[in-house]
Design a binder for these strands. Structure first.
Lengths: 279, 279
DNA sequence: AAAATCTATATTGATATCCAATCCTGCATT
DNA sequence: AATGCAGGATTGGATATCAATATAGATTTT
């Protein structure tokens, strides 16, 4: 199997994407090494990987922290994401066969059913996976990895500015995009992608931050294998609960995952936070 | 300043991009730790960074090796690079001001002069930097980093399949692209970018590998600070020689950096190496 | 009392040494 | 010749230790 530091990288990544470890949170080597019951070196390696992925920053002699992107970087991230998805869209409109379009439509249909059933968490997850599926159909692993990283970083962003609708509940956009691309109407498709992301980013900019900050110990407790004897304090939940919770609502973090229809109209004066970081 | 492992990551990266460490080369922890006179752990951290960047692969209990991309990955890399540059081009054609176009033209002019002067190494370097400058004008650091990584990986590719023309000596393409974009003729500009990269990739596919394999010790000798007492065997060259050599021809590696005009015609049956890796 | 400085503690960066697991090589055997 | 085994080498990891640095608390000064 993979090395321990890789496992820990994965766990930390998941915890960050679940908004359990929020931007700015200190990732102390000693603390994490006690939590995971490994040596500091293993933790350090995991933190290096996190930093390379853009999810953490390492300050010399100060330690690692969950990354806290600036407003500038947030805009750049969505810009890059738009660029990538537009490029992939252009490729797909030329190269994708009927079975591919079908796969996309099936996915949208599943999300629609989830929305109807009121299963917000699942709908949210499917909404995110739509974009992943979209890129996967390009059959370019390099592109997939780039896109996945961008998605991770935008997910991180969302724990900074909890929007009341999440990344991809813009279901109609997804459906319309498929139609436009299959018909080869490239230009409106491009604009749709751009406005799609713009809608999301605008939603974020004006919202005010929330998110309770958990200590790493509390945040990571659900991910730990509690079959072996515990050293630390608490830790009653077991690993199986994670899957259940995956991509869904984490009550402790105070996240609200309302499904909403668009608001393309909203041109809210986007100046809630003119300066540096999205505190 | 930056940590030692970061310094070593940078040195190894440079050595790989200079084709001194070629794909498949074993990067043993003990050997490197002796070469750089640091502990194994520092080396390990550097190798992790290299692997995250796609320049090395780490196999469990076997160690790290300079990455040896498959033909498939090579094609995907150029595909991704094309996608990114097309996207940036589309943005620039809308947003770039006269001073930006001017900057690009100046760059091309400098490369033209280098070609005229017969300074192949400089022309080659400028040719590569054109693409970097291009992306930098988008003012998107996220995009810049993605692009830079793709460039690094394609550069790695070139040490696998030494083409007799290098990445970006297609001077006319660069100049024409600027003209097309400034005039807003987006579609031909996109096609130009695609064919630009296709030309390069086609050139690679049919060429047969060469490149003498150096031992890590020999390969890294020029990068070491020889002011402190040497432990290892040889090592007469000093650091100043590196700069001189940077981006240029490394005689030991047997590289040939001929500047050539295009060969858009060449539709050579591209089946020199149908199977897996570009050996 | 507020500000500035200094000291003590905690954390990181790094080294050395040690150990287990695993891979590879070479030798012996069939 | 092919197979199987043993030993060596290498990686992944643990632990203990040390120097450098940053934070926080205590002390002094204004």
């Amino acid at each position: 199997m993979s090395s321990r530091s890789q496992t820990i990288t994965a766990i930390l990544t998941k915890a960050i994407l679940d908004h359990r470890l929020v931007p700015g949170c200190k990732l102390g080597e000693r603390e994490l090494s006690e939590i995971f019951d490994v040596s500091r070196i293993v933790i350090r390696q995991a933190l290096i990987r996190l930093a390379d992925d853009g999810l953490a920053t390492i300050e010399r002699n100060r330690g690692a922290f969950v990354a806290k992107p600036s407003l500038q970087e947030a805009l750049e991230l969505y810009d890059a994401l738009t660029l990538v998805e537009q490029g992939v869209a252009a490729q797909l409109s030329e190269r994708l066969g009927p079975s591919g379009w079908n796969e996309l439509r099936q996915h949208v249909e599943r999300q629609r059913q989830a929305v109807e059933a009121g299963n917000d968490a699942l709908a949210d997850l499917l909404g995110q996976e739509y974009h992943t599926l979209f890129v996967r159909l390009s059959r370019n692993k390099v592109m997939q990895e780039i896109h996945a990283q961008l998605i991770r970083r935008t997910t991180l962003l969302r724990s900074l500015i909890p929007a009341d609708f999440d990344y991809c509940n813009l279901l109609d956009d997804h459906s319309r995009l498929i139609d436009l691309l299959e018909k080869g109407r490239l230009k409106p498709a491009m604009e749709l992608i751009a406005s799609h992301h713009n809608t999301v980013v605008r939603g974020y900019i004006m919202d005010r931050p929330a998110h309770v900050e958990l200590t790493p110990r509390d945040a990571l407790a659900p991910y730990l294998d509690t079959t072996r004897p515990e050293k630390g304090s608490r830790g009653s939940e077991n690993a199986s609960e994670i899957r259940e919770e995956a991509g869904g609502t984490t009550s402790q973090a105070g996240k609200t995952n309302k499904i909403r229809s668009h608001r393309h109209d909203g041109h809210h004066s986007a100046n809630a936070n003119p300066e540096g970081t999205l505190q």
